[in-house]
Design a protein around this nucleic acid. Structure first.
Lengths: 337, 337
DNA sequence: TTGAAAGCGCTAACAA
DNA sequence: TTGTTAGCGCTTTCAA
C-alpha cells in the first residue's frame, strides 16, 4: 500500500485473511458473517485506519447517505446557524452533511449547487432566496429537496418557511394598537424569500388601514444603511411615516442607525420593527423589537421533511411553517402625533 | 434513461452519435476531438443536462478537484467569512469546495473531518483549534492540508495564522504607553489557536514589566460573560488590574459587558483590548479597540499554500503569517492611577 | 457462511 | 482523430 493512499477493502481483506465481500458485509452491516470473521475484520480495519470510499459507494449505489446544503451566504447569522443545526440533525441520523455557499451573486450560487449535484448527494437543502424556481424544479425532480425560507410552488420541493401570515397579523396589530397609521416597509425584491412576507404584511396592513410605502433596501446592512439614510429623512417623522418595518434584522439595524443620524430618536420619534431576527451570539448595537426565528426549529422541520422523502421518494411536497417568537426590544413605541 | 437518474457520458455519447471516450475527452478538455464532434458533444451534454459524476471521476483518478473545509463553528463570524472567502478562491481556480462544521464538541468535529476524508477531497483546510496535532498529522500525511489560526508543528501541514508576535508587541507597547502595569488576559486553554497568541503576549508583557493574570474564559460570549463577571470585580479597578486583553472578540465584548455591570466605566476605569477581531457585518454593542484579522488575506494565503501543494505534493510545510490591522475603537484609554 | 464475478461512470493507455 | 479496453473501490447477486 503506497503512502499517499488510504487503505481499501482489499487491503483489509488481505490483512484479515478473508475475502473482500466478507469485509464489505461486516463494515456495511448488511449481510452475514461469522462472529470470528466479523471480529477480525473490525480489528484489521481499525489497525489499517480504513475509511470507506464514498466515491465507490456512490458509484455502485447511485445514491449517498450525504445531504448537501446550499447557503445563500455563510456569513449571515441565519444561514450559519442553519448549517450548524442541520449538521447536528444529520449526525443524529448517521447521515453525512456538506455545505456550500454562494457569494452574493447568482452565478456562484448556481455553481455551488452544481458542486452538490456533481457529488451526487442524496438530498438537498436549498437555503437560498435568489435561486429561480425553475432551477429548484430541475433538481427537485431528481432528488429529495427542501427549500427554506421561501415558497417554491410547482417545483416538487418541500418547503419550510416562517409563518409570514401570523407574523404580519401580529405586527400590524401591534403597530395599530400603538397608533401607527403610516409606515415604511424595508423590502428586498431580489429575494424570493421576501415575497410571502411582503405580501402577507401588505395585506394585513391594508386591512388595518395602515398606509405602507415600500423602500428597496436589500437584506444586508451596508446597502440598507445607504437606502435608509436617503429614505428616512424624506419619509419619516411627525405627519409622515412613524414606523419602519424591516424584513431582515440587518435592514432593521440600518433603519435605527439612519434614524439616529437624522436626528430621529428611536423609539420616541420612530418605531423600528424587524420581521425576521435571529438570536444573536453577541450583543448588537441596538436591542431590536421584532420577531425571532427559531433556527433550530427550522432545521428540525427541514430534516423531518428530508427523511420523509428518503422513506417515500414519491410523497407529495409539503409546506411546513416555522414558529416565530416576539422579542420586546427597545425600538418600538407609540406613534408621534 | 429513467427519470430519477442523471444522464451519463454514455447517454451523451449515444445522443451525439460518438463513442464515450470522445465525450470524455471533450468534456474534460484533455485529449483530442474533431471540431464537429466537440460541438455535437457539447450540444448533447447541454440538452440532456449532463453533469459529471464526481464519484466516478474520483474513483478512477483517486483524487478530486474538490477541497474540503473543516470549520470549528460555522456560527462564528471568522469561520463563516473564511468559508465564504475560500469558496471564492476555489471558484477562481475552478476547484470545488465543500464545508463541514463541528458543533462545539470534539467528537462531531472528528466526524466532520471523517466526512471529508470519506469523500476523498483532494485538499483540506483545517479551521479548527481543538483538533489534536496527531489527528492533523494523520490526514496531512495523506493529502495537502492547511491548518488555520494555530501552529501544527511536526504534522506536515502548512500553517496560516495571525502574526501573534507582532500583535503582542504592539499591544504591549500600547498598554505600556498608556500607563497599564497590571492586566488580565482572557484565555482559552482548550484551543490550540490560543497557544501562539498567549505565549507571545505573555513574553512581551513580561519583557515590558507588565504583570499579567490569566483568566480562563473560552472564546464564546456566553461563557466569557460568566467568567468575566466573576473575575473583573475581583481583579480589576484602581490599585488592581487596569486592563483586560482578550484573545477573541466575543470575550472582549463580554469583558465590557461585565465591567459595565460592575460599575467600571470603559475605558475610563478599565481598558479592554481585543487581540483578534473581525470586521463586523453589523454594528456591535460596543466599538472595541483591538486588532482586526484580515480574513480575506488569510483565505488567500491558505489557497496559495494549497495550490503550492497541489503542484508539488512533496514540498516542505511552511508557516505563513496573516496581516492584522489596528482598530482604534472606544474601549481603550489611559490607566487609572 | 463464504467467495467469485459483474458492474456502477469515468479516465487513460493503446490500437486502429 | 477515433474506438476499445481495463480498472478505480465498492456492493450485490449467485453459487458453492
Amino acid at each position: 500500500m503506497p503512502e499517499n493512499r488510504l487503505p481499501t477493502i482489499i487491503d483489509v481483506a488481505r490483512h484479515a485473511g478473508v475475502s473482500k465481500s466478507v469485509v464489505s458485509r461486516v463494515l456495511s452491516g448488511n449481510g452475514a458473517a461469522s462472529p470470528a470473521a466479523r471480529a477480525q475484520v473490525l480489528v484489521s480495519a481499525h489497525e489499517l485506519g480504513y475509511r470507506v470510499n464514498v466515491a465507490a459507494q456512490t458509484l455502485v449505489s447511485g445514491r449517498t447517505r450525504t445531504v448537501g446544503v446550499l447557503l445563500r451566504r455563510s456569513t449571515s447569522p441565519f444561514y450559519a446557524q442553519l448549517m450548524s443545526e442541520l449538521q447536528s440533525a444529520a449526525n443524529l441520523d448517521d447521515y453525512r452533511m456538506v455545505a456550500v455557499t454562494g457569494n452574493l451573486d447568482e452565478a456562484s450560487e448556481q455553481r455551488a449547487l452544481e458542486t452538490l449535484l456533481e457529488l451526487r448527494v442524496g438530498g438537498l437543502v436549498i437555503g437560498s432566496g435568489t435561486l429561480p424556481n425553475e432551477a429548484i424544479a430541475a433538481v427537485a425532480a431528481r432528488l429529495p429537496s427542501v427549500a427554506i425560507g421561501r415558497d417554491a410552488p410547482g417545483t416538487g420541493a418541500d418547503v419550510v418557511r416562517f409563518d409570514a401570515e401570523r407574523t404580519a397579523l401580529e405586527a400590524v396589530r401591534l403597530l395599530s394598537a400603538t397608533g401607527h397609521r403610516r409606515i415604511l416597509l424595508f423590502d428586498s425584491t431580489s429575494s424570493y424569500s421576501a415575497l410571502p412576507r411582503r405580501t402577507a404584511f401588505l395585506d394585513a396592513a391594508a386591512a388595518a388601514g395602515i398606509r405602507t410605502d415600500l423602500v428597496e433596501t436589500g437584506y444586508d446592512f451596508g446597502p440598507s444603511l445607504q437606502a435608509a439614510s436617503e429614505a428616512i429623512p424624506r419619509l419619516c417623522g411627525p405627519g409622515a411615516a412613524t414606523a419602519v418595518v424591516a424584513l431582515s434584522q440587518e435592514a432593521a439595524l440600518a433603519a435605527v442607525a439612519a434614524a439616529e443620524s437624522s436626528g430621529l430618536a428611536v423609539p420616541a420619534a420612530l418605531t423600528v420593527l424587524a420581521l425576521d431576527m435571529n438570536e444573536s451570539v453577541v450583543p448588537l448595537r441596538w436591542d431590536l423589537t421584532g420577531y425571532v426565528t427559531d433556527v433550530r426549529g427550522i432545521a428540525r422541520l427541514t430534516w423531518a421533511a428530508l427523511t420523509r422523502r428518503f422513506a417515500d421518494p414519491a410523497a407529495a411536497p409539503e409546506t411546513r411553517l416555522a414558529p416565530l417568537s416576539f422579542h420586546a426590544g427597545a425600538t418600538a413605541g407609540t406613534a408621534v402625533s
